[in-house]
Design a protein around this nucleic acid. Structure first.
Lengths: 189, 189, 189, 189
DNA sequence: TATGAATGAGCCTTCATTCAT
DNA sequence: AATGAATGAAGGCTCATTCAT
């Protein structure tokens, strides 16, 4: 019984998280009401509040998930950097993957908006994540650049990261024709 | 009389626009209520309605202003591209200027969020603006690049524009240490 | 000048009345705002208020027009009652005419609703009109009924008038298949 | 506990319905605000929303109640038609009962107005109800009319129904002297 | 006569949150 | 653990009316 309850509890927490994730991706956090989530998850609002005292907490959990997913993906790509695949192709691939994860990148922008519009805690976490992602990219570039270009690594990493984020915005706005391959080539030239 | 009324009317319209601008920059459009605007502007909600039948209309007006401002600034910079100033310095300056216009760039992100979360019309306008900005940047690069690099222009313009937008986000999130000069140098190398 | 003004004034009054009439018929008085009227009439709200201090006054004027129109139509029909046309056909014609003046009968119901929901003055006028219409119908029946049925006249007039009004409602509600000829025949049998 | 809650919930729903009913009857649906209802019922606007997401839903519920009440009353009367009471007296009684349910008949007119002024759904329901009432009346007349008059039944039913509705309007407008007995006699003669 | 800027009260609706059970 | 009834503040919007010019 106790066990069963616990399991059920865990299930519910995950259920809420998944449902919220889906809805946040579709409509953004601000436009998703807790009623929406409860209804779609098939639980009561009371239950939702049992697991998340505040909408904010729910957002935090989702943001954490989201950032970790990105980090994991970046690490996976960097592994390829050391393999025999052409670096330029890898970078172009990163661009395309990030940008095409349409729902996910929508969530990314929604969360950024949340952070910027006053959520200090969320802002802190985003800042930390960006730093980590920047470092990961730097590591990647370090492995592929010739010695005489090592000094460019910080600038390159920053360029890549900012450009990817910016591309994500343009893609969301409907500009789906950016020359990702050329951009990657110019960067790595 | 008639004139005074007209002036008064114009004043009020401008007053509303300015007040909304200020508040949107501070808290975003979604979190700024029409009551907030009216209160801060010292007019009644009815008056606000007299000038803007819909919150959306107000947002559109502000977005238009905002985009035009960016366009004008970009054109100004490009004029410098043809002067004797170092291109790299100009580009670094663009980065810094865009990014440091803190309130303005906050507004930029808020408006993008509005667009992405369902405002088709706003999205269209943003897309058009991004295309225009991209073309302006291409013109600028065309003037400074040697002939044998002309093929890189589209990629360079896209890189610059996406990277600037991405930098803006990172800056808003509190990362104020991006190596803009180096980024500009690497891009133009 | 003075004359011209006066004429213009009269024109404006009529213009307002006609415009309001059109809109009231289409959407009802409650759902027609004074702004709607002013806009459609191509005048300012101020001008509208110059002629009608209150929305109510405007409604009264329109109601008066409307009732007079009905009265005139009834008198016209009654003239036919004395001619060689079959009474039953005349009565069926009345039914059909009243009921098919779709817009006009919509206005009729809207005005009744206004009256019932608290406008004592309008109610008084309606009551007076109904009495007059009832008398007119009585006169008509008096001319066509044989002597031994004279006693039925008040009941017949009441039946006809209430039934016509009721038919108008059913017609507005979409029941357009009432057996008007048979109803008229049964009444006059 | 659970039961009490449920009962409380049911009570509140009924409380809202009753309160709305009272106010609608007094002032009409359009002139009754949800605030009015909440205030008079002694609950918050939020609670009202909990039970009725929309004013329209509330109106539908009330309209349904109202139409069912009429239907039930009609059926009751028709039962008498087969008993030994004089048909004419029964019909006159119907007239008087309908017409004297002053508040109720006011609601009837308000609802009709709602339907006519654009509520397609309500209009459909009214049309269906009128058809049903018409059929019920036809059944009643079928039982009391001699065989040689069977052909008049549809016209008679239509006459009765429209006339009753029309009487209701006149009564609401203050004309409380209609000769119901005579009208019934003439109809059934 | 005519205008239109300005108002303020009010409307319907939304929603995060609380709490007794 | 879970429920769902209840709340109240707030949001965007509408509109009859006033009034200086």
């Amino acid at each position: 019984m106790a066990v069963k309850s616990k399991i059920k509890g865990i299930d519910n927490r995950k259920l809420i998280l998944d449902t919220a994730n889906t809805l946040f991706k579709k409509q953004g956090a601000q436009k998703t009401s807790l009623s929406d989530i409860a209804k779609k998850a098939g639980i009561s609002k009371g239950t939702l509040y049992y697991y998340y005292t505040t909408k904010r907490e729910l957002i935090y959990d989702i943001a954490r998930d989201h950032m970790e997913t990105i980090t994991r993906a970046l690490i996976r790509w960097l592994k390829d950097m050391s393999s025999e695949i052409e670096p330029m192709e890898i970078l172009a691939h990163v661009y395309r993957t990030v940008v095409n994860a349409s729902q996910r990148s929508k969530l990314h922008l929604y969360l950024i908006e949340e952070a910027i519009s006053g959520d200090k805690e969320l802002m802190k976490r985003f800042r930390a994540s960006y730093t980590k992602w920047n470092n990961l990219l730097s590591d990647g570039f370090a492995r592929i650049l010739p010695k005489n270009k090592k000094d460019d690594i910080p600038a390159l990493a920053a360029l890549a990261l900012t450009s990817i984020t910016g591309s994500l915005i343009q893609h969301q706005l409907g500009n789906k024709q950016l020359p990702y391959s050329d951009m990657a080539r110019v960067l790595l030239k």
